[in-house]
Nucleic acid binder design. Structure first.
Lengths: 343, 343
DNA sequence: CCCAGGTATGACAACGTTATCCAGGGCCTA
DNA sequence: TAGGCCCTGGATAACGTTGTCATACCTGGG
């Protein structure tokens, strides 16, 4: 009779605890107890229930569970682009921490679009993730206020949050860039070019600040033509580099503001005769073989630190929001130690 | 009264449609209608509801929605390692297709562990993803049978499924390897080494088969010492390469079975005097600068094809499970065109 | 032989949403 | 002006799980 009211043929119809209970000849709650490993079930009963579960191919519906329990054991990660080699290890590190805490990771790419970032973050909140890790694409995160108030733990990585007080994990972009440029200065360079991402992006701003600081430290003026901020697609970067390297007073060294810029810069410089020094922000694969000197930031450490902070909050830690800054590391591989060509 | 029974102070207590309805002075279903953009609500009523939503910071609880509707608009992706540069673009392509269909992507890494793959896939099913894309780590996927029967659309990518009949999207590993080795043969090589992943991995097996086929096509015997299958960590690969390159009859060319092997091979060969030809399976970043000849597979196309197939099924297509094989492409950049050193 | 106390089990409500259905009111038409 | 129809809005029942509580049974001690 039950079979007629609820025909097996209906597509997508899965067995529920009720079905398992009926088959095993026990009550609904007993099945729940077995599934969740709660005590108070005789081995014999448990055996019958397990058999029914096996026979029906039952799998607990976590949506219903979540609805009842309130927690999803899921955290969300909003990043810029999964295909960017910088974010792979970061995402992986977050996942590893989540896994250690028995949580799943949901992620999405914002493609650097603030609107899409918001859309994604809110979609994750609607699915009631317990926590959220965001790599900001936009500069205003007040839209997350109701969520945070409602208890969604939130940590920002790589760039600070805008308009709200929250946990942030950053690399020392200022210090790293300053050290990288100082390294070039120490090798005799006076005219150093800086190519980075659009000025709206926090990391680009910070690195520019570091560049200027290092130049000032050395008592060097910065010509307008030596700084280029904008999209980091190969065309734009190649053009910017080309402009800096030509003219009456070309730069003798380049500081590349991120991994994409570095890659293009390496290509551009490979096609030139006159040696030009290069230091890049972010390590890139095979940089050792290419001899590229870089300021390396530890993407995995960023992800791990953020995730650990998130779970500490989820476990009830009631600290004030804080900003953590991770050190960068200069790795000299040759390209940054080339002396100036002109003199 | 209601406020006392349900104090605002309870942490994590979010406003529900009921709360919104009370505040707006309308019925529950009316709020639902507004939230879902259903017709049959006067502009005035809608306005009041929207104000209440705004004021309370209400966000629909998708868990409850899923429970009621049956569909989650979420697809799961189980891959090997997000930090591997091969999977970033694949994952991104899947995400892009999912986004176009209004779905979110949940992903997890199996770390090449079959048990972890199963655990992950089943966790995703428990969360009732609508579909599942799996890059197999294990060779037996019968554990997914109840899920597939229950309506979870499933597509396997990069490696075939074991023990079940399902959609599969693959690269032409056999043909690609055969073409790569034939390329080396065409440049005069007779003793060619092959270093690849563990023999349990389907892609490694197929590429080995391609290697053997190309050698046989050329009428060349394959010495046992020329083939090395195993973990692809740098140490093991460097050792294997070193062994093949020494001894009385060293190989004059290497065929690298995947991107990790290629990277290590480039490093090993860079430290040698005698030129050794190299062709690698999978393209790697900056390979153009390093002059590495590769068999390129299109990771993004793999992901896109699999995702499109998945959504076609979710939209009701009732085709028989099929296997799609995508072509690979040989990109000559120099390392594969080096003539044999010994003669 | 009866009762206290513990253990195994099940009935029932609740989680927040959507679907179904019904009611009331305004408007149009005859 | 009355009758019928459409249009808006709400009451109520699910969805599948877990938490609460009650009940039946068993054991052992007085």
């Amino acid at each position: 009779m039950a079979d007629i009211a609820r025909p097996e043929s209906r597509y997508g119809n899965r067995p529920t605890m009720k079905d398992v209970a009926a088959r095993a000849g026990v009550g609904l709650k007993t099945v729940s107890r077995v599934v969740n490993g709660e005590p108070g079930v005789t081995p014999d009963t448990e055996h019958r229930v397990r058999e029914a579960i096996e026979a029906l191919g039952f799998r607990r519906n976590d949506s219903a569970r979540v609805l009842r329990k309130g927690r999803t054991a899921t955290v969300g990660l909003v990043l810029e682009d999964l295909a960017d080699p910088f974010y792979g290890p970061l995402s992986r590190a977050v996942e590893e921490v989540a896994r250690a805490h028995g949580a799943l990771l949901v992620n999405g790419s914002s493609a650097e679009d603030p609107e899409r970032e918001q859309e994604l973050a809110l979609a994750l909140c609607a699915r009631r993730v317990d926590g959220l890790i965001v790599i900001p694409a936009g500069g205003d995160h007040r839209y997350l206020e109701p969520e945070i108030r409602a208890g969604v733990a939130t940590v920002f990585v790589d760039r600070p949050a805008g308009g709200i007080d929250a946990d942030v994990v950053l690399s020392d972009n200022f210090g790293g860039a300053r050290a990288g440029v100082a390294h070039l200065v120490a090798h005799g360079h006076r005219r150093i070019g800086f190519i980075a991402d659009r000025p709206g992006i926090h990391t680009a701003k910070e690195r520019l600040r570091g560049y200027r600081a290092a130049m000032e430290d050395a008592g060097l003026d910065v010509a307008d033509a030596w700084v280029s901020l904008g999209p980091t697609d190969p065309e734009r970067v190649a053009e910017a580099a080309g402009a800096m390297l030509s003219g009456p007073e070309p730069v003798t060294a380049l500081f590349a503001g991120n991994n994409r810029v570095t890659v293009t810069a390496v290509r551009v410089l490979a096609g030139r005769e006159r040696p030009v020094a290069l230091v890049g922000f972010d390590d890139i694969e095979l940089a050792d073989l290419l001899g590229v000197t870089v300021i390396a930031q530890d993407a995995a450490a960023l992800g791990r630190t953020a995730a650990e902070r998130l779970f500490r909050r989820l476990e009830g830690a009631d600290e004030a929001p804080a900003t953590v800054v991770l050190d960068t590391r200069l790795i000299a591989r040759g390209s940054g130690e080339v002396p100036p060509a002109g003199g």
